[in-house]
Design a protein around this nucleic acid. Structure first.
Lengths: 279, 279
DNA sequence: CAAGAAAAAGTTGTATACGATCTATCTGCG
DNA sequence: CGCAGATAGATCGTATACAACTTTTTCTTG
């Protein structure tokens, strides 16, 4: 027990902002939500998740709280946790917040971003391009979010990047929900343009970011009609113009809990009396 | 058990953004931290807090996680929770984030704020003035934070106001830590000026807010020398020029757990061998 | 007497148990 | 046949118990 004098070299300051405990479980549930492997409205039962991941309810609970804090899970007192169904209003508010935060991030990056950081971001953009070429919408949402996050991290304000982390989380779910099915919501070259502007110390770089986020928001179908819970794909029919990849609802994640997606929890106060006699 | 058909009218959507569970305990610990009743670095032992509040460790744990998320408590794995000691860097980052968020808040308020909201804010400013007159520094920090929060709530973007809630939390602790002992950090009339500008739909109102926050930040003594953990008052001696109120370290909160403020946890790796023989 | 190892005490991390609450199903009455 | 009332099942909220880790104290030895 004395042999591990190492322990001290590992800085505990590595933790990003808060607990970030239970990282593995958190990551898997988060991914499944943003993937839409777990559609909005899905009930996330603690016991069931605990069994699936082979842990007690305690740890699941912590993860659910964290996800709720980030707005991708909704906690109803005494009823449990559900995958969030961001409203149109939520969507607008999240993007407005992102514009505020990321404007500041880019303004900082303009002064702070070192060549090494720029290089890493360029590499990341190549990966994004790969995903775009492969028409992997799911990966693209994730990578796109990561670009914004990397930029924030590189800009050196940990508070800003901590806030942005949560906003990107929510935004990813929102995009997955409201994105126009055929097209990609993230205009291809804007990330590059922003990075170029930063590299050239162009004072308009922050405004470019703001516009980029406006474009992304505008590329969504933000109508109350497209009520969350009803998947857009079921409205627009089978991937109209989308090549392979979009329709690949492959269930390669053997760990997802079952989807209980009942009719959405809001309208079913006294739901339709479905009295099926059994005798 | 059937009598409470009411339950449905009470919207569960009342919850602000996340859990906000354990509101009472949360509030009391938060207040004590921002009060400096619990000085930075104080160990917050779960068992002890549980006893004090008459609840199990479970609920305390939840509160501590939430406080950690807001940055007023620091969680060290396997070591426990401590009252945070915001660094100078933390302070600058928090204020930069606040400028970004609150600029957006005021920009919104410019379009959204109804006369009723303005009236409520004016009333609040009167209470602030009362606290200032009474030289109640503690109350002033709290009220001042609440003004910013009320403005955010009134501006109608719940995401922004949720983020700001956490930032104000952190900022309150920071101000309490780094404020120049004699003077108040919040320039008296700026809140009024901002509200005036909003009421008159002055397009510069957001910039006023930004400047206000810059003033507050500049009014702090942000030097690494003023290391957190060493209370400023102990440096500047007994309330040099401050009238009554500043020195009133009255312990009217009978519920605070004891202060274990050891020498700050960072430097005491192998602390001074204090081998007190007992025989 | 000092320095290090071993033991003890204290605290956190996680699982589990029990009561409270909610949802759903079933029964009886209009 | 339809709806109110009661019962059963499931799930959450909280406390508690136990294991792992950290810190402190005590004991041993040069």
């Amino acid at each position: 027990m004395i042999a591990k004098s190492r322990k001290r070299t590992a800085r505990p300051a590595a933790e990003p902002i808060a607990v970030r405990a239970q990282g593995a479980i958190y990551e898997r549930i988060w991914t499944s939500i943003v993937d839409h492997s777990l559609p909005p409205g899905t009930k996330l039962t603690e016991d069931r998740l605990g069994e699936i991941f082979g842990v007690g309810r305690t740890r699941i609970r912590q993860v659910l709280f964290q996800l709720a804090h980030e707005g991708v899970v909704r906690l109803e007192p005494n009823r449990g946790a559900f995958v969030a169904q961001p409203t149109v209003r939520d969507a607008r508010e999240v993007f407005e917040a992102r514009r505020a935060i990321e404007w500041a991030v880019v303004a900082r990056a303009l002064h702070m971003l070192a060549p090494a950081g720029i290089k890493r971001l360029r590499e990341h953009l190549r990966r994004e391009q790969t995903a775009r070429d492969a028409n992997d919408r799911r990966a693209l949402i994730k990578l796109s979010g990561e670009f914004h996050l990397m930029l924030a991290d590189a800009s050196g304000n940990q508070v800003l990047s901590g806030i942005l982390r949560e906003l990107v989380s929510r935004a990813s779910l929102i995009i997955a929900l409201y994105e126009y099915p055929g097209a990609h919501s993230c205009p291809p070259d804007e990330h590059n343009a922003i990075l170029d502007a930063i590299e050239k110390r162009n004072a308009h770089a922050p405004d470019l970011m703001r516009q980029h986020l406006e474009h992304v928001e505008r590329s969504l179908i933000l109508r109350e009609g497209n009520a969350p819970g009803v998947d857009l794909k079921s409205i627009f029919g089978e991937e109209a113009a989308a090549p392979a990849g979009t329709g690949e609802q492959h269930a390669d994640q053997g760990d997802q809990p079952e989807h209980h997606t009942r009719n959405d929890p809001k309208n079913r106060r006294r739901s339709v009396k479905r009295r099926r006699a059994r005798n």
